[in-house]
Simulated assay, not measured.
Amino acid sequence: MHLFYTPDITLSAQQYTLSEEESKHCCRVLRLEAGDQIYLIDGKGGFFTGRIDEANPKRVKVEIVDKTEGYGKRNHYLHMAVAPTKNIDRFEWFLEKATEIGIDEITPLICDRSERKEVKIDRLNKVITSAVKQSVTAYHPVLNEPKRMKDLLSQDFSGQKFIAHCEEDAKQELRNTIHLKNQYLILIGPEGDFSTNEISQSLKSGFIPVTLGNTRLRTETAALEACFEVNFLHR
């Protein structure tokens, strides 16, 4: 299946022209020609079947022959706020795998003990887009700009809020706590964990402390575990 990410396509479109980057990939890498069938996604649930009318490396023109709205829509909304890892490859790995499993929104979270406080949003979005195409999903997760912990805690959120931390406090297992078909915001801290003050402030803001198992997980592993648990419970 040859899938292209086309965020500016409209549901009423009868024809569409691929961007120069996607056109080049279509013609020179995939070597597709006029008459070949391709698929387009808008990242908002639109899934389109198209037929190539003109195969030009700079502008591939496509006739839209079928479309589906809400393709693969899930019955819940998952927002993960995760501290970027010192080794950015690990954070990119999380973004790739979480996109494949199912996630709606990601916020890089800047904490007291964060070793990395800046990320390249454009690069990370490319990782997500590649994973969207590979997993054949019509929804492109939203990647927010990095946000400090205190700013995230001050935001309104309609749904359940969780924080996974390593301190020896009373915590519930995530899988026993979530209410199905809901919205979820889950906080995952940096390699050195959340500070005591951050944990205290999150609890005051209505976050439920949870555990993801008996072993201490790396940041990216904990984030993916939480993502998997939420999606598995909604199958």
Rank of each mutant, 00 (worst) to 15 (best):
E145F: 02
R116L: 05
V127N: 08
R31V: 04
E168W: 02
G35K: 05
E115F: 00
P57G: 06
N214L: 10
D42Q: 00
M1A: 14
E22L: 12
R59C: 07
C227S: 13
T68H: 10
M80S: 04
V142W: 02
R59E: 14
K67T: 12
S23T: 01
I121N: 02
E54K: 15
K120D: 06
A170L: 13
I163Y: 00
D122N: 10
T221G: 07
Q134W: 02
Y71W: 11
I52L: 01
I110T: 07
R235F: 15
T137L: 07
S135A: 15
I52C: 00
Y71H: 15
E145T: 06
R90G: 00
F48G: 00
L95Y: 12
E225H: 14
P57K: 01
M1P: 13
R59L: 08
Q201L: 14
Q134V: 03
T99L: 02
Y139P: 06
L224D: 02
A55M: 05
N75C: 11
Q134I: 07
A81Y: 11
V119C: 02
F157D: 05
S158T: 10
D36F: 00
T99R: 05
I41G: 00
F162I: 14
D8F: 07
A222S: 12
N87A: 11
T6Q: 08
A34K: 13
N125T: 00
L153M: 12
D151M: 01
F4M: 07
A170W: 08
F194H: 11
A81S: 13
C26E: 01
R90Y: 09
S130H: 13
E118H: 06
K97D: 10
I121F: 01
L143F: 12
R148F: 05
A164H: 01
C27F: 11
E145V: 03
R31N: 02
R148G: 07
V60G: 05
N176H: 09
K181D: 11
F91H: 08
T129V: 13
L217F: 12
D112L: 04
F157M: 08
Q160K: 01
A98R: 09
H140L: 10
C26A: 03
Q134Y: 07
D8T: 14
K86V: 06
V230T: 09
K73F: 00
